[in-house]
Each structure stands twice: as structure tokens, then as C-alpha cells.
Design a binder for these strands. Structure first.
Length: 272
DNA sequence: CGCCAGGCCTGCACGC
DNA sequence: TGCGTGCAGGCCTGGC
């Protein structure tokens, strides 16, 4: 379940291995991802050299000189560097072969992910142009959240999942950040004040940073690690813990449904 | 067998 | 009429 931290850890793992490498071939075994993998991907990528790997929200942006490869991992996708000779597994849909005999291999069992190609600024692509501030950048703050939610009745949990307010906060970290900020996920976003939004923004940052650091510790063997461990899972305060005691006060964690997504919270620590 | 999880785009219905 | 808003559907597989 790649959320922003997993995508960032992926970016950090891939960048040094890709930068300066030339593409010598592209193999698309199954183009049926969320959107079809562009049929012309092999021809446009052939001979291109990777210059950089960036990230916007949960989108990975590969600067290939002639254009940009955009990859979204959906909810079951992973990218790793493999030996080209290693036989692909069942859900290995795309290989991008490099000039050193290795390849970047996309695995995505559920195929909610996407592989796109654009020739100009990927941030202007329709899928990316409306994305809100990066949570770890300076233009995200309690103030931006406060301003964006004036007059809105939507529960704060669902507002946090809206990528136009803040980029890349998924279900797990929305739950965790609200716990850390002591805010009831059902509280109407428009009725939360500046001070609490400052706490919430800080909680979002802290949670994401911590998760990235935890993932970063596995960076060394990133390329060849088989299934990736999620250390951070051990540390969840509320996510997936319904019925278990709150780590802060002992009250049983509750689970409710908001917008067809599971929400977890502590009824005592989190207030409207 | 059925249900659920996950991200997030898309389309619809609604009210001002 | 257009817009902002809030909801629900859809995509897909594996695990319970």
C-alpha cells in the first residue's frame, strides 16, 4: 500500500541507480493499468537517458531528457531494479531495460497504478495540475488548510484525503495525523480553528517524515530486497487497531466508515 | 463463496 | 447557467 512515504523511499532508492543510465529497451507485458500504458512508450524511451527522479504527491516523475515518464503505484505497485535475466513474476507488467544489463521493473497485482509519458512539464499534466501543496514543503501549513476549508462541512478526515488540499496524504497517515493532533476525524473541516490546524499540519509533517525515515533504513538493500518490510506498521497509533487499547489513554480504538473508507480514532484523545 | 482493503479519477445530484 | 460541493461508482487481486 504505497502512500507518500513509500513513494518517496522508492524515489530515493531508484534515483542513484537510474541517473545517467540509458534505456536500451522497453517491455510491456500487460498495458492494462489504470490507463493503458502508451503504445509508443518503447519508441519514445528507447535511447533516452535518465536525468533525475522527482515526486509530486504520489506520482513519480522520471526526467528522461526527451520527456517525462510518470508512474503512479496505485495501491499495490512497486518499482525495483532487477537483473534483466531474472524471469518476470506474474504481475511484473513493465520492464525498462538499462544499459548495464539491469532493468526497472514495475509490479502491480491490482493494476490501479499508471505509467504515462509526457513531452512537456509533467506538473501541468491534467492529473497533476490540480494537486495541492506538498506536505513536506514550505507552502503547506495550518494556514493553508484553514483557508481551504472555510465554509466546508466535509469531515476533516475526508478533507485530508483530498489531494487538492494537501498532496499525497492517504488513509493510513490521515488517521495517524488526526490522532496525533487530537482531532476527531468526524469534525467538520470548516469549524476547526487556526490553532488546531497548525497542530494538524505539524502532525502530518511529523508522521510522514518519521515514516520516510523508517523506510529509509532499508534503503541500502532496496534494489534487491524481495518483499519490503513496513517497520512503521508496528508504530501505528490507531490505524487497524479497532478494539485495541489506545496507546495514550487505554480506551478502545474505534472504527467507523467515512466516505467508504475505514477511519480509526480514540474516542477519548480525539475531540471535535 | 462473499467481502474487504487500498488510491483517486470520474460522473452524478444537489443547492446557491 | 454555472459553479462549488459532497457522494458513490469503478477499476483489480489477494487474503480472510
Amino acid at each position: 500500500m504505497p502512500e507518500l512515504p513509500e513513494v518517496e523511499v522508492t524515489r530515493c532508492g531508484l534515483a542513484p541507480q537510474l541517473t545517467g543510465r540509458r534505456v536500451v529497451g522497453v517491455r510491456v507485458r500487460n498495458p492494462a493499468l489504470r490507463w493503458p500504458v502508451p503504445a509508443r512508450l518503447p519508441e519514445v524511451l528507447q535511447g533516452a537517458t535518465f536525468r533525475d527522479v522527482a515526486r509530486r504527491g504520489k506520482y513519480l516523475l522520471f526526467d528522461c531528457g526527451a520527456g517525462w515518464l510518470i508512474v503512479h503505484l496505485g495501491m499495490s505497485g512497486s518499482l525495483r531494479i532487477s537483473d534483466c535475466a531474472t524471469p518476470p513474476a506474474k504481475h511484473d507488467h513493465v520492464d525498462i531495460e538499462l544499459d548495464d544489463g539491469r532493468c526497472m521493473r514495475l509490479r502491480d497485482p491490482r493494476r490501479f497504478g499508471a505509467v504515462l509519458w509526457v513531452e512537456d512539464d509533467p506538473r501541468r499534466h491534467p492529473l497533476l495540475s490540480g494537486i495541492g501543496p506538498e506536505p513536506l514543503a514550505d507552502d503547506f501549513s495550518g494556514e493553508t488548510l484553514w483557508r481551504a476549508t472555510r465554509g466546508r462541512g466535509i469531515p476533516i478526515k475526508q478533507a485530508l484525503l483530498d489531494g487538492r488540499l494537501v498532496a499525497g496524504v492517504g488513509n493510513i497517515y490521515a488517521n495517524e495525523a488526526l490522532f496525533q493532533a487530537g482531532i476527531d476525524p468526524r469534525a467538520p473541516a470548516g469549524r476547526i480553528g487556526r490553532v488546531r490546524y497548525a497542530d494538524l499540519a505539524e502532525a502530518v509533517r511529523a508522521i510522514l517524515r518519521r515514516a520516510i525515515e523508517a523506510g529509509g533504513s532499508s534503503l541500502r538493500d532496496f534494489a534487491d530486497s524481495a518483499g519490503n518490510p513496513g517497520y512503521f506498521q508496528q508504530e501505528y497509533a490507531v490505524y487497524g487497531r479497532d478494539g485495541q487499547p489506545c496507546r495514550a489513554c487505554g480506551a478502545p480504538i474505534r472504527r467507523v466508515r467515512q466516505g467508504q473508507r475505514a477511519t480509526f480514532y480514540c474516542p477519548d484523545c480525539q475531540r471535535r
